[in-house]
């Protein structure tokens, strides 16, 4: 069994290499946000100036607020609408249900480039135009399928007898939903909400097509800055974004098992 052990250690070593590949650029990017040289020159000199100057950058701050606002509103709307739809898909049997479930996949599967292009053209055509409202419309639509899939997965573990029992004890439909079903699926709803927040907060492609100079989100603003030539200020914002996104992800993982094991 000696070969097996050697192979296992090779496997562990390989995982470490992969983690290095995945994290090295991110760590370097974050480290450079604390480096004094505006041209990313080494040796490393510690500074927090770039974070301070970020604070003065009104354009970036406005874009950040837009991003947060849109992500929060997207989360609220898509979680409520998505949970309602999942509940209906779980509770009722009707013709065309399979079709409705299949309709959730195009928004996930079609490249965002195509969805974004289509939204830009359509919103312009019907007079919604570009801007924050258009971005919000798009983000909710992108987040909804994720919420429905996650909440439905949680509903699969729900025992319908519980609803029956509550109903036979005299609870009406609203009471059954709020007191029995909702508490049970809450972890799924929260995970779905965090998914929705991440989809919106990290969304670049669709926001890019739908934004106008005054009304943009943070990723769009970063893209513009990168193409103009980058400065450590972008590293500083990027570091903040990465920390926020990863914290959210860890939160999601707490509510929702990704590993698929109990």
């Amino acid at each position: 069994m000696a070969t097996t052990r050697i192979l296992e250690w090779c496997g562990r070593f390989y995982i470490v290499l992969l983690l290095g590949f995945l994290y090295l650029p991110i760590i370097i990017m974050a480290a450079m946000s604390f480096n004094a040289s505006p041209f990313y020159q080494l040796p490393f000199e510690w500074t927090t100036d770039w974070y301070a100057s970020l604070w003065q950058n009104d354009q970036l701050i406005a874009a950040t607020w837009n991003s947060i606002e849109i992500a929060v509103i997207t989360t609220l709307i898509s979680t409520v609408l998505g949970s309602m739809a999942s509940l209906a898909l779980y509770r009722y049997e009707f013709r065309g249900k399979k079709f409705l479930q299949a309709l959730l996949f195009p928004p996930i599967a079609i490249p965002w480039l195509i969805t974004g292009t289509a939204m830009l053209i359509f919103f312009f055509g019907v007079g919604i135009g570009r801007g924050l409202i258009a971005i919000l419309l798009g983000h909710v639509a992108l987040a909804l399928p994720y919420v429905i899939v996650v909440v439905s997965a949680r509903l699969q573990t729900f025992a319908p007898e519980l609803e029956e029992a509550a109903r036979s004890l005299g609870a009406n439909q609203w009471q059954v939903t709020m007191r029995v079903t909702l508490p049970w699926i809450m972890p799924g709803v929260i995970a779905g909400g965090l998914f929705a927040f991440a989809v919106s907060f990290d969304q670049f492609v669709v926001s890019y097509f739908l934004s106008t100079p005054g009304q943009t989100t943070l990723p769009v603003e970063i893209y513009a800055a990168i193409r103009k030539g980058f400065t450590p200020e972008i590293n500083a914002v990027s570091t903040i974004i990465i920390v926020v996104s990863m914290a959210l992800m860890l939160l999601t993982a707490r509510f929702f098992k990704f590993g698929g094991e109990k």
């Binding site: 991110i26 990017m29 990290d202 670049f204 990168i226 959210l248």
Partner: peptide
């Protein structure tokens, strides 16, 4: 969790970090 964590971070930011490297 460590492996799937980065792909929850902004794709644009990850591409930008490669530009640094």
């Amino acid at each position: 969790l460590l492996v799937i964590l980065p792909f929850w971070s902004n794709g644009l930011v990850r591409i930008f970090s490669w530009a640094m490297v």
